[in-house]
């Protein structure tokens, strides 16, 4: 009980203290608002520009969630293929790594030239950033089935499909979910980076472009307000995925049961 309170109150106290110091510093030092706005200025901007910023947030969020879903499905399938054939895994895994380590900012302009639908172009960028943790985690999970259980399945004459569905897939599930939690944050980053590069995608303007725009106009409080919304979104995505992961694993996995009811 005490620990729960500590966990909630201590970070909140740090946050409040930080905001108070920031507020005082901004007001007392006389630094202009277009360089360092006070938290109260940002809150004001959030109140005034909130509705239009939320509209932009929705655009970014749609790309993020679509990219995450695509990463989960395609990433999971790639991992499945990798686990079925060692040859395919060895042949293709390096290229997944290359795709992962190449900075998305560098590839994004190409993708935007190649893919004509703005939504699809942004989605592709975000997907490239998000899919790798799911592929690598799930591949490890699919390959880490208990050796004795594998022997037992062999003993009872299980088919490859049965070994996959009854043993490898359940073993891989916690790994997949851990990958998904990482990918959730990455999909948002990917979407934001893609928007930075693409600029405004026609009628719909994402939150990232609003940040750029606010920067050009020296509307720094609005820039901070948009940034704040972006952070909150990232945290919310993480919390939702964490919740889903706990729900799925709550009955059996050590990561959940160790701190559970007992």
């Amino acid at each position: 009980m005490n620990r729960v309170w500590l966990r909630v109150i201590a970070p909140l106290a740090v946050g409040a203290l930080f905001l108070a110091l920031w507020q005082a510093a901004a007001r007392l030092s006389g630094v202009p608002v277009y360089i360092l706005p006070a938290p109260s200025d940002i809150a004001g901007s959030l109140w005034v520009d909130g509705p239009s910023l939320l509209g932009s947030l929705l655009v970014t969020l749609r790309i993020t969630l679509a990219a995450l879903a695509a990463a989960a499905i395609i990433g999971g399938l790639i991992a499945l293929v990798f686990s079925l054939s060692r040859v395919i895994e060895i042949s293709f895994f390096p290229y997944a790594v290359i795709l992962q380590v190449t900075p998305i900012v560098a590839i994004a302009p190409l993708i935007i030239i190649w893919v004509h639908t703005p939504f699809l172009a942004l989605l592709t960028c975000a997907w490239i950033v998000a899919f790798f943790p799911i592929v690598s985690n799930t591949t490890v999970g699919l390959n880490s089935a208990d050796r004795n259980l594998l022997a037992l399945f062999k003993l009872y004459g299980a088919s490859r499909g049965q070994v996959l569905w009854f043993l490898r897939v359940p073993t891989a599930l916690p790994y997949f979910l851990a990958g998904l939690r990482i990918s959730g944050g990455l999909a948002l980053i990917g979407a934001v980076v893609a928007e930075f590069v693409a600029g405004t995608g026609g009628a719909e303007t994402g939150l990232a472009y609003r940040i750029l725009e606010a920067g050009y106009r020296l509307a720094i409080p609005r820039l901070f307000a948009a940034l704040f919304l972006l952070s909150v979104t990232g945290i919310a995505i993480y919390l939702v995925l964490d919740f889903i992961s706990r729900r799925v694993l709550r009955r059996w996995h050590e990561s959940v049961t160790a701190e559970g009811e007992e």
Binding site: D146, F166, H253
Partner: peptide, 8 residues
């Protein structure tokens, strides 16, 4: 080892 499936 008991070699059970922990998810079952």
């Amino acid at each position: 080892d008991p070699t059970l499936m922990p998810w079952s």
